[in-house]
């Protein structure tokens, strides 16, 4: 029983990192129609920036916020200089954002060196508690709580605020929303900033578990895309449920079918693409 609990907690805590990533990217795709494959790289930059600041003696949470803010600024620069010229041009979006993955990866190699890095959780969270005959790191509980708080905040923002209503309207019918006199460009830029911020935040919050390295962006991007396919684009609930589902199935797959570990998550992807391509909570 204790082992089962550990596997579920592992899946949920890993799922929360995926949720932060997927919720941001899901909105970028939903609101802007931009398939931003650079999202994994923004996650990597957030991890490295946070690690650098924490390594200089900075507070862990401030380093996480700074990682998110700097990533948001980079996201804004990308949106203003490149992405806004590529609306509805899916091939160009893929090529450009994939190119940025390689550029950012090599820049990280140049700036932070070839060796991977790993963050230390705050001292008060850097211990483990006993669950049956197992130990479980307290920081992973903290990650679950942070993910739920951010998820609740995003849900409230999307469902209960005027800007959230505009975002939802834009996702359903962008032209009609603009026809009502709404400056959708600002909404789109803000969405990319928010998505990039969440990606960067996820990078550093995940760093005490997953570390940081120059080629970390692409593998996590693939899982993030699986989460979006499962949950559906442009939905906070979808990103959360999709991330938890992917996280838990991944954890159980690795534990009980290690030889199929590479396959289990992608099997879900294939199943959803065949049976429910709009995802569990997709708007389209």
């Amino acid at each position: 029983m204790a082992e089962l609990v550990i596997h579920i907690l592992n899946g949920i805590s890993y799922g929360m990192i995926l949720f932060l990533l997927a919720s941001g990217l899901s909105f970028i795709i939903g609101v802007m129609g931009i398939l931003n494959l650079t999202h994994g790289s923004l996650y990597m930059i957030g991890a490295y920036v946070g690690l650098t600041l924490a390594g200089m003696g900075g507070n862990f949470w401030l380093a996480a916020l700074a990682g998110g803010v700097i990533t948001a600024v980079i996201g804004l620069i990308l949106e203003r200089t490149f992405f806004r010229f590529l609306y509805k041009q899916i091939n160009e979006q893929v090529l450009l954002t994939l190119g940025f993955v390689y550029i950012f990866s090599n820049l990280a190699l140049w700036v932070w060196g070839p060796f991977p890095k790993i963050a230390s959780a705050p001292t008060y969270l850097a211990h483990s508690i006993a669950i049956g005959s197992f130990s479980f790191p307290v920081y992973r509980f903290a990650l679950i709580v942070i993910g739920l708080i951010i998820g609740a905040g995003m849900w409230w923002f999307q469902e209960r605020t005027k800007i959230g209503a505009i975002v939802r309207a834009g996702m359903d019918d962008k032209e009609m929303t603009m026809g009502l006199g709404i400056n959708y460009g600002i909404i789109a830029s803000s969405t990319l900033c928010l998505g990039a911020f969440l990606g960067g935040l996820a990078g550093f919050l995940g760093a005490p578990i997953l570390g940081a390295q120059s080629d970390m962006g692409f593998p996590i991007l693939l899982l993030t895309l699986v989460v979006i396919v499962v949950g559906g684009e442009g939905s906070v609930e979808g990103a959360l449920v999709g991330a938890l589902l992917v996280g838990i199935i991944d954890a159980f797959g690795r534990a009980f079918f290690p030889d199929l570990a590479m396959f289990t998550v992608y099997a879900i992807l294939i199943a959803f693409l065949l049976v429910k391509p709009s995802g569990l909570f997709g708007r389209r």
Partner: peptide
């Protein structure tokens, strides 16, 4: 692989050592 939680929970507890070969960020994680 960077999250080893699922594997660590499945280890055979009667063993007394782990010999490992992991590269990239997997080693430190």
């Amino acid at each position: 692989t960077l999250d080893f939680g699922p594997y660590l929970a499945k280890l055979d507890k009667t063993a007394d050592c782990i010999a490992f070969w992991l590269t990239g960020g997997s080693n430190i994680s």
